[in-house]
Simulated assay, not measured.
Amino acid sequence: MSQEEAARARGRVGGRPTVAAEEIIRAARDLLPDPGRSITSIAKLLGVSPGTLYNHIPDLRDAGQAIEHARRIDTAALPTSERQARYWIDVARAFDQWGKPDRCYRGLLAAEHAAPQEVRRGSVRTMAAGLMRHDRALPGVRAFAQRVGALA
């Protein structure tokens, strides 16, 4: 008899217990519409990792759903230019996951316009490098990739 079978025989079921209680997930859902809060800041406030929220709130993993949520946010209401840039980077990431390179590129350009220092992040470099496959269809993407350090 395996350890798993023995545990089942003793009435034990399941694996590792979940970190996120239903109250935490409910609180996270309540905080999500606030444009001044990021997934990371919500997770930190609730004492869980961002990955925990992504694992327990399926809408956060769906790129199309993310774009729908993003459309409801007034970027002018975001408190700082850095937060505005992060918003545009998140929008670009969703379009990248959705397979829309032109919209991804526009989001990255908006982030660069809002706060140029924010597009020097690894995630932006990765997206910019991926956009290089579309360099003929996306005028200026090569120069953008150069600016963010995606080209060695």
Rank of each mutant, 00 (worst) to 15 (best):
G11L: 07
K100W: 10
Q84C: 08
P101C: 08
S38R: 01
S49F: 09
R71V: 10
K100C: 15
A152T: 15
I67V: 10
E112R: 06
P17G: 09
S123P: 07
R37V: 07
V48L: 03
R10N: 13
E118P: 08
A66M: 09
Q146R: 15
A85L: 06
V141M: 03
I39L: 09
A111P: 06
S2N: 12
Q117L: 14
R133W: 05
P101R: 03
M132C: 11
I57M: 08
Q146Y: 15
I73N: 04
R142H: 12
E23T: 09
T52F: 11
R147T: 09
R121H: 09
R120K: 15
G64M: 00
G14C: 04
V13M: 02
Y54P: 01
L109Y: 02
A21R: 14
L31V: 11
V124L: 01
A6K: 14
A143D: 15
L31R: 06
M132D: 04
Q97L: 11
G47R: 01
T75D: 02
T75Q: 08
V19T: 03
G122I: 07
R86H: 11
A7C: 14
G107T: 07
R86D: 08
R86V: 08
R125S: 01
W88Q: 09
P33N: 13
V48M: 04
W98T: 03
R93M: 13
A27P: 05
D34A: 09
I89Q: 00
Q146T: 15
E5T: 04
A150Y: 00
R86T: 09
I89Y: 02
A6I: 13
S38W: 00
A70I: 07
L78H: 09
L31W: 03
A145N: 04
W98S: 09
R93E: 13
N55R: 15
H69C: 14
D34R: 12
T40L: 15
R125G: 01
E68V: 07
R142L: 06
R103V: 11
A115R: 01
G36H: 08
G107C: 05
V13H: 03
T40Y: 13
D135L: 06
A114G: 00
Q65H: 00
A145F: 03
D30K: 13
I25W: 00
F144H: 03
L46H: 04
A114R: 00
G149M: 01
Q84D: 06
G15R: 03
I24H: 12
S38E: 11
I73W: 04
K100F: 13
R106H: 08
R10T: 14
L131H: 03
E5H: 05
R8Q: 13
P139I: 03
A20I: 02
I25G: 01
G64S: 07
G122N: 12
A114W: 00
A77D: 15
